[in-house]
Nucleic acid binder design. Structure first.
Lengths: 261, 261
DNA sequence: CAGTGGTCTAGACCACCGA
DNA sequence: CGGTGGTCTAGACCACTGT
C-alpha cells in the first residue's frame, strides 16, 4: 500500500510506536549508535516512509528507556547523513528523497577503495625517486628528498581506463607490488593503521598527447579527464599525492555533496 | 616499519590558558558556537599551531564557566570540520594541516554562489518547457509537466567559460532575468527560503561539437568538462537539475572531500 | 496556546593511552 | 597507574511552529 499520496502535507504519524528497537546495553556498541543503525534500517526498508514524522524526542527516549541526549545523538547522526530533517515546532521527519542510496562519498572511494577490486590493476612502476618541487610541496617534504612513486594502469573488461601516478612519503607503507595489484592502495593504508580523513582534488580535462593515447588505447587528441589529489590522514598529514588521467569515453566521477553552512 | 605520527611529537601545551574567550550569554548565538568560532579563529591566526594540545575538556569547561557537554559540542564541530583531532587518552590537538583554508565545499558553491559575482553571466533562455524524461526523473515530476529552463553563458575577462543549462520545478522561484544576471541562482534560492542541502554530481569530459565550440569560442574537438547535477533542499526535494559544459582550458573543479566512515 | 526541537547544566562511569 | 576522551543520565529553560 504504500504511499502517502499527498506530497504536500505528509504529516502522517508513523507506525513507529510498534517498531521495536532492540538495544543491548551489554554491547560495546554505543546505544546512540545502535539506535541510529536501527532507525536507518527502518528508513532503508521503507518502514519509515519519506515525510513520516518520527515522534517527539521526549516520548521516544521514555519509550526506549534512554535519556533525551542519547536519543538526540542518534537522530543527529542521521540528520548529518541527510536522512532526517528536524524542524523546531514541527518535529523530525524522514527526508523526501529520491536518492537515499548513494549518500556516502565519493570519488575518493571510487578510486582508492575500488582500486584492485573489480578492475584489474597493473603496476607499471614502484620505486623511490627524488621529490620534484610540486610533489614536495604537496607532501610537505623537502624538495629532492626520497618519496615513493607508483604508476598503475587500471583496466576493466580488458580495456584500459585510467593511468594513475601516485607519490607517497618514503617509508609510510610497505608497498608490495603483488599486494598492490590485488588489494588496492586504500586498503593497504587502512591496514597499516592510516586513517584517511580528507582530500583536496582538482578535476579537469584536456586532449590526450600521443603518448597518453598510446597508453590508454585512445586516439591522440581525444578528451581525457584529469584529476590531481592530495590525501590527508586524521592528523592532517599528507599521505598521498596523485595525478590521474582517465579515458573520458569510459569513466566519469559520480558523487554526492553535502552542504552544511 | 611504518611508523605513524612521529612528526606529531609536538606535545606542546599551548598558551591557551592565556587566551581569553569572550562568551556572551546574552547573545542569541549559542555558547558552543561562540566558542567554536573563537577556537577556529585562534587556529586560523596561528595562536594555536598544528600539533598543539588543547588541554582537557574538564579544565576548559571550568575555566570558561561552561559545562563539559557544551565545550564538547564546540570541539566536536571543529573536529567535524577537520580542524581538530581527538584521541582518547591523549587529548585534542590541532590538525597537522597544509590546507586549513579551503575546508568548505565545493563546486556547488563555485557555481551557485559565485554565479553572477565576479564573472559575468548572460541569460540566453529563461522559459517554461515540458519536462523531458531525464529532467522529469531528476526533478521528480511527471514527464511533460511544465518546468523552467534556464540557459546561461558565463564569462570572465570577456572570454566565455561555461554554458549552463538548468531546469527548476515550475513556480519554485521567481526568476527575473535581470536578477539572475547580477545575483546568481544560489542566492536567489536562498533568499526565497530554500536551503540547499545536498547534490548529486557527475563530472566527465568529451570533445566539443561544432555548435558547442562556437558557443564557447573554442575549436571543434577541443576538450570540454561536463557536469550534471541534481540539487536537493533540506527536505530532500529536488530543486534544480543542470547540465553544464566548461572550457577545459579555462576551468577546473577544485574541492575538498571529507571522509567520515 | 501547546508542542516541538535547540540549548545548557552538573554530575557519572567507562575505555583507552602513555608512563 | 593517572589522565584523556567517549558515553550516558535526568533534569532545566528557551525559541520557534502551528492552531
Amino acid at each position: 500500500m504504500a504511499k502517502t499520496g499527498d506530497s504536500s502535507r505528509a504529516v502522517t504519524a508513523p507506525a513507529l510506536s510498534s517498531l521495536d528497537f532492540a538495544l543491548d546495553r551489554a554491547s560495546p556498541v554505543p546505544l546512540y549508535y545502535q539506535l541510529a543503525q536501527q532507525l536507518e534500517a527502518a528508513i532503508e526498508h521503507g518502514v519509515l516512509a519519506p515525510g513520516n514524522l518520527l515522534g517527539n524526542e521526549i516520548d521516544l527516549s521514555v519509550r526506549l528507556g534512554l535519556s533525551r541526549p542519547t536519543v538526540r545523538q542518534a537522530i543527529q547522526s542521521l540528520v548529518d547523513k541527510g536522512l532526517l530533517v528536524r524542524r523546531r515546532g514541527v518535529g523530525t521527519q524522514v527526508v523526501h528523497s529520491q536518492v537515499k542510496r548513494p549518500l556516502e562519498l565519493s570519488s575518493l572511494y571510487d578510486d582508492l577503495e575500488e582500486a584492485g577490486q573489480g578492475p584489474a590493476t597493473r603496476v607499471v612502476r614502484n620505486e623511490g625517486v627524488a621529490a620534484s618541487a610540486d610533489v614536495a610541496a604537496a607532501l610537505g617534504v623537502a624538495e629532492g628528498s626520497e618519496v615513493t612513486r607508483l604508476e598503475r594502469l587500471r583496466s576493466t573488461h580488458g580495456q584500459p581506463v585510467a593511468f594513475l601516478c601516485n607519490y607517497l612519503p618514503s617509508g609510510l607503507l610497505d608497498l608490495g607490488t603483488n599486494r598492490l595489484e590485488s588489494t588496492g592502495l586504500y586498503r593497504m593504508m587502512r591496514s597499516a593503521g592510516i586513517t584517511l580523513h580528507s582530500a583536496r582534488q582538482t578535476i579537469g580535462a584536456r586532449s590526450a598527447t600521443a603518448e597518453e593515447a598510446r597508453l590508454l588505447d585512445e586516439r591522440a587528441g581525444s578528451a581525457l579527464l584529469t584529476m590531481q589529489r592530495t590525501a590527508y590522514d586524521d592528523t592532517g598529514r599528507p599521505v598521498e599525492y596523485g595525478t590521474h588521467i582517465y579515458r573520458a569515453s569510459r569513466y566519469a566521477f559520480d558523487f554526492q555533496l553535502l552542504v552544511r553552512p
